[in-house]
Nucleic acid binder design. Structure first.
Length: 258
DNA sequence: ATGTCGGAATTATTCCGA
């Protein structure tokens, strides 16, 4: 089984590109972020035509998350409880004995912005919600765009210059650590402990070609799934144009489970 | 180059968010 996460930066602009990737990689479960459309605007027929169901939590213009799946799942959660006014950023569905959640965490903008403390609060709500609804004994995935770099290896910025830089603060990293302390495992880092690989590159300034990126997109999983992991890939090739189609600023991340 | 995208508001241009 192949599971994946991908911030697509606007589904209306990215539909053909996403379908190109689905055809090439044939994933079974995909968490999508930044749909930037409403539930009514979601192109279900275009995904059904290529063999995918979708479980959607959208909103007008911004945010929005969905789960694509070969088999229809059962929707179990739309939105992070208590944080609904920060946008549509979480959706969970059940696929057999596997619980699959995808999230689009708030960006925070910069440390002096009101969104920064709200971002930390959002993560606190996430950790509480997660620990109250999930068990470390079950098969569960939490994936998405977390908008933070857990360690120096996950950022092109030199560590001596990241102390007060958004995505790199001690407070943000503590939120990520709390998820790991609960029992979730960062599949890419588990599989590739020393590899400096990014999942996002700014559109501006030739960042991709200069490899000035950040690893901010994660597949987190419960320990019971670990033994089944065969490979974890950041699909950097799909950060490039395909057949003249513009890529998202994020690459897909996928894992193959036995 | 504060360099690019996607989308909204408004109707080809500017603003905003990332």
């Amino acid at each position: 089984m192949r599971i994946a996460t991908w911030n697509i930066n606007g589904l209306r602009a990215r539909l053909d590109f996403v379908r190109h990737w689905l055809a090439a990689r044939q994933p079974d479960l995909v968490g999508l972020q930044e749909l930037k459309l409403t539930d009514e605007q979601f192109p279900h027929a275009d995904f059904e035509a290529v063999g995918y169901h979708a479980t959607v939590h959208g909103q007008k213009a911004w945010n929005g998350v969905a789960i694509l799946s070969r088999e229809a799942g059962t929707l179990t959660q739309r939105g992070l409880p208590g944080q609904e006014d920060f946008g549509s950023r979480l959706v969970t569905a059940q696929f057999g004995d596997l619980s699959f959640t995808t999230i689009y965490c708030p960006n925070g903008k910069h440390l002096a912005h009101d969104d920064y403390p709200r971002k930390l609060d959002w993560f606190d709500s996430l950790a509480t919600f997660w620990s109250e609804t999930r068990s470390t004994e079950e098969a569960a995935v939490l994936c998405g765009d977390l908008n933070l770099c857990p360690a120096e290896l996950d950022s092109h910025h030199p560590p001596e210059k990241t102390g007060d830089r958004i995505f790199h603060t001690t407070a943000e990293r503590a939120r990520f650590e709390r998820l790991l302390e609960w029992g979730l495992v960062d599949l890419f880092r588990h599989r590739h402990p020393e590899e400096r690989m990014y999942s996002w590159w700014d559109y501006r300034g030739g960042s991709f070609h200069r490899n000035l990126g950040l690893r901010i997109d994660f597949l987190l999983a419960t320990p019971t799934l670990l033994a089944r992991v065969r490979d974890v890939v950041i699909d950097r090739d799909y950060r490039k144009k395909k057949d003249g189609l513009t890529a998202s600023d994020h690459a897909p991340v996928y894992a193959d489970l036995e």
